[in-house]
């Protein structure tokens, strides 16, 4: 393999990994904070992409994309926040909350998917990319959209890390994630913090949807693949630290990019699942996990 080819595959893997990280971090933050797996997360990605498409196509070009990048996450934040009260809050005292939330979030995924079909129809759509052409770096040519995706993804992940580590609300979310009872005793409004967590996860999903929708076609069932990839990343990397699924996402992205080049597009999922099974056999808590969950 030539060095130039290797570099292209690396960049492609990193861009893919960044998007997977953005999708998976929402799933991971919800799991570590509330202790439930949100199976509606994939449809959050899809709904975010559709809202962004609606906004960007009505305005067009880079301004449309920019407005979509603002409206879609805000909309999804509100939807995610509200959905907490419908999907999880009613069952928070139930000992079977994990199982019940699987059912409620799967139901929500199905309803959102149907609503997307009802509002936007079954025909595929694509969000117009804000930048076009290539950027020349050290004699190599990279897609400007790929570079933008990678930079924005890293920025959003860093912003989320800062928010959780440094802001008062982020600190409160981390505290509530670790010890709900002590947090309540301290007077935290834990329900609000949990709803905020789902809202933030949904907003990051919307940004992922915006970028995926600008490089691939979107349709009402488009959320299935992001959900599957997020699950792989979270299980693969574990959730011991904020960075665990992010590192795993980049590894998954790189494995996928190399698999596509070496074995073809259709072998990539098989190779990913095969590696995931091997990791789980050796380290059931995930590649970067401990046998605990923290935020």
């Amino acid at each position: 393999m030539e060095l130039e080819t290797l570099l292209y595959i690396l960049v492609s893997g990193l861009v893919l990994g960044g998007l997977y990280a953005l999708m998976a971090i929402g799933l991971s933050v919800v799991w570590t904070t509330i202790g439930v797996f949100n199976f509606a997360h994939g449809t959050f990605v899809a709904l975010g992409a559709y809202i962004a498409w609606q906004v960007s196509s009505s305005l067009g070009g880079a301004p449309g994309f920019l407005l979509g990048a603002v409206i879609a996450p805000i909309s999804l934040f509100i939807i995610g926040y509200a959905l907490h009260y419908a999907l999880i809050k009613p069952f928070e005292r139930n000992p079977n909350i994990v199982l019940l939330s699987v059912i409620t979030t799967l139901a929500a995924a199905s309803i959102i998917e149907s609503l997307i079909q009802l509002i936007w129809g079954p025909r595929e759509k694509q969000i117009e990319a804000p930048v076009s052409g290539n950027l020349e770096v050290a004699g190599l040519s990279f897609s400007a959209q790929d570079i933008l995706t990678f930079v924005v993804t890293l920025f959003i992940l860093a912003l989320l890390a800062w928010f959780l580590k440094r802001s008062g609300t982020g600190r409160a979310m981390r505290a509530a994630a670790q010890n709900r009872e002590a947090a309540q005793l301290m007077g935290f409004n834990v329900t609000h913090l949990y709803a905020l967590t789902i809202g933030i996860a949904a907003a990051t999903a919307a940004i992922a949807g915006l970028f995926i929708g600008s490089i691939r076609f979107i349709n009402p069932t488009f959320g299935v693949d992001p959900l599957m990839k997020s699950l792989i990343v979270v299980i693969f990397g574990g959730v011991a630290h904020f960075t665990s699924p992010i590192l795993a996402a980049f590894i998954v992205g790189l494995i996928e990019a190399f698999s596509v080049y070496l074995f073809g597009l259709y072998w990539a999922p098989s190779i990913l699942f095969g590696l995931m099974i091997i990791v789980l056999l050796i380290k059931p808590e995930g590649l970067f996990g401990f046998q605990r969950k923290t935020l």
Partner: peptide, 23 residues
């Protein structure tokens, strides 16, 4: 609490800060 009910993976100062910020 009877047992040590803290936010274990948060730093000590973060434990005190969340208490201050919340109240």
């Amino acid at each position: 609490f009877q047992r040590e009910a803290l936010f274990g993976s948060l730093s000590c100062i973060d434990n005190i800060l969340v208490a201050v910020e919340q109240t």
